[in-house]
Simulated assay, not measured.
Amino acid sequence: MQATEKITGNQLGFLIFTFIISTNLLTVPSFMVMFGKQDAWLSALIAPITGVVCILVMIELAKRYPGQTITQYSSKILGKGLGKLVAANYVYYWFVSITTITMQHTGFISTLLLPTSPTLIISLTFLVICGLAAQLGIEAIARSTEFLTVLLLVFFIPLLILTIKEANFNEIKPILSGGIYPVLQGAVNPAGGFMNQLFILGWLLPYLNQPKAARKVSFIALSGITLLSVSIVSLTIMIFGPLTSKLTYSFLSVVQYIGIEGSFERLEAIAVSTWVIGCFVKVSVSMFILSLCVSQLFGLRNYRSLIYPLTLLSLVGSFWIFKNSAELLNYTAFTFPLLGFINQSLIPILLLLIDSIRKKGTRSMVQ
């Protein structure tokens, strides 16, 4: 832990917002419509409920163990052996997350912008930039995110406004024609894999200079994520209807459609810019957290010395873990929600439950 590194409440809110919405922008609508059909916008309203639980759990744990990350206080709650196992599990989780996002980013850029460029070069340059940001520390990442988030919204909100003109509200009817079950299915992917990423609070709260502001800024960020996610999903369905589930980058297709039908051309460049900004913030924060997890697992004082080796390993992993885009799509649609639920929700809830039982037992023995 670097005592000199501190972030403000506003910076924490921007980090949470951009970290989560970055992957929601272009890919989540297709996953939600795959299950929720035309009611997927209702799924986007339900999914944040798990985010609320996640915020409350992580803030409560941070209050009980101030100045410590989840990989540190897990050893105090579970004992050294099990605590180290939890830390090792999070090392694996964040490593896979970084490699997954890198492969998504590389596939996106190579498909749309640089089809003749070697994917190795695209991945390498992206990871090097993210590694440099992580090397500078969470304070530098948070300050850059303040500017980048505003830039992302300045780019993206006009696209939403242009989309409304082409929207067909009949595409979201009839509402709940298949009952509530498909809606809940559609909420599983963003709930398990994206909304619960608010558990990054377990590593960011020790750096917050105003701990009391954590709850407020986290809920404000979650509200912004929910509003934008519902808007994106709804407008995508209103443009493409059932076809949404078959599109890899569904909202990008919406943007391209607007460019064809309207007076503006090459609007996808704006969507690509928002994607790059979001992925940069997400991987930079993930790389910082991964280096923290490794340093705390092995008792190292300086996490920065690990960033470059981890960046190299992440580059290797982005080509080794998934053989092709089909495997990646299958992982993000079906495997990651379960993996996300276990790591982002189940483990923190169990830690809080076990800690509460232990403290209650200790008070009973004292009395």
Rank of each mutant, 00 (worst) to 15 (best):
Val254Gly: 08
Ile20Met: 11
Ile258Arg: 08
Thr244Arg: 03
Ala221Arg: 05
Glu327Asn: 08
Met365Trp: 11
Tyr303Asn: 05
Glu327Met: 11
Lys63Arg: 15
Arg143Asn: 02
Leu42Cys: 05
Thr111Cys: 10
Ala44Thr: 00
Gly224Tyr: 13
Arg64Leu: 05
Ser250Trp: 02
Gly13Asn: 09
Tyr73Gln: 10
Thr71Ala: 13
Ile98Met: 03
Tyr181Ala: 15
Leu148Gln: 00
Leu153Glu: 01
Asp355His: 11
Val150Trp: 05
Phe147Arg: 08
Val188Leu: 12
Thr226Tyr: 08
Tyr207Lys: 08
Leu85Glu: 12
Ile180Ser: 11
Gly317Met: 05
Phe17Ala: 03
Glu265Ser: 14
Trp275Cys: 02
Ser253Gly: 13
Gly299Ile: 06
Ser74Val: 01
Phe108His: 13
Phe199Gly: 05
Thr335Ile: 10
Gly36Ile: 05
Gln104Ala: 06
Gly186Val: 11
Ile258Gln: 06
Leu351Ser: 07
Asn24Gly: 12
Gln296Thr: 01
Ser218Leu: 10
Ser295Lys: 00
Leu227Met: 14
Ile121Asp: 02
Ser325Tyr: 15
Thr50Ser: 11
Leu300Lys: 08
Leu351Cys: 02
Thr111Ser: 15
Leu313Cys: 10
Gly224Trp: 06
Lys323Glu: 04
Ser356Asn: 09
Leu162Thr: 02
Val183Ile: 15
Pro309Cys: 00
Ser284Arg: 01
Val28Ser: 11
Glu166Gln: 14
Val91Met: 13
Ser223Ile: 12
Ser223Met: 07
Leu290Gln: 01
Thr106Ala: 12
Phe19Cys: 09
Trp203Met: 15
Met103His: 14
Val254Ala: 04
Asn10Leu: 13
Ser43Ile: 07
Ala142Phe: 00
Thr102Gly: 06
Val183Trp: 05
Ala3Arg: 01
Gly36Thr: 06
Val183Thr: 13
Gly137Ser: 01
Glu60Cys: 03
Asn89Gln: 12
Leu339Pro: 01
Gly137Ala: 04
Thr311Cys: 14
Ile321Ser: 06
Ile237Met: 00
Leu201Trp: 05
Phe251Gln: 10
Ser123Arg: 09
Thr102His: 04
Ile129Ser: 09
Ser318His: 00
Arg304Thr: 07
Val86Met: 12
Phe156Gln: 01
Ser177Gln: 15
Ser253Leu: 03
Pro337Tyr: 05
Thr4Cys: 04
Leu42Thr: 09
Thr99Pro: 14
Phe155Ala: 08
Trp275Ala: 15
Val96Trp: 10
Gly137Asn: 03
Phe17Trp: 09
